[in-house]
């Protein structure tokens, strides 16, 4: 039983119990996109590997074989100390990233929600700015 709440107003949902299955057809483009994405991403991963295997010399070292991710060694004691500032930055990033995520549907539906919507988003942004200012003033953005 699936329903998309995003494109239907709440009120109109009542009484649509009958055509649950037919709704799925609407998701077909997404499925297609998913397939294409899978194919493309697989191509981007495996194509360079294949090409390099075929063209370059194969001379592995320990460092070469290590996974490279986020600046950390992949395997070590989980109780090691690291700088909390990574997380601070990450959290700040998430907050402002989400802000951007809110902006997309707002921008799309701005016609519908009018000035009220516009003012509301401005207030939302203002609140974020206050938070940003607070973080800045307290030095959360300074690495040192």
């Amino acid at each position: 039983m699936l329903r998309s709440g995003a494109d239907l107003p709440v009120d109109s949902l009542q009484g649509q119990e009958g055509n649950d299955l037919t709704d799925l057809s609407q998701y077909l483009p997404i499925l297609l996109f998913l397939g294409i994405a899978l194919i493309l991403s697989a191509a981007f991963v495996f194509l360079p590997m294949g090409v390099s295997r075929l063209t370059g010399t194969h001379n592995p070292t320990v460092n070469k074989l290590t996974e490279y991710e986020c600046g950390f060694p992949a395997f070590e004691d989980s109780r090691s100390q690291f700088d909390v500032r990574f997380y601070l930055v990450a959290i700040l990033f998430i907050i402002f990233d989400l802000e951007a995520a809110f902006l997309f549907p707002w921008a799309v539906s701005l016609n519908e929600i009018g000035w009220t919507g516009w003012v509301t988003m401005m207030i939302f942004l203002f609140e974020l700015i206050v938070g940003f200012a607070y973080a800045w003033k307290l030095g959360a953005l300074d690495w040192e």
Binding site: A133, Y134, K137
Partner: peptide
């Protein structure tokens, strides 16, 4: 709350 946050920060 927002105002106090700024006051507190500065």
């Amino acid at each position: 709350g927002l105002l106090l946050l700024l006051i507190g920060a500065w």
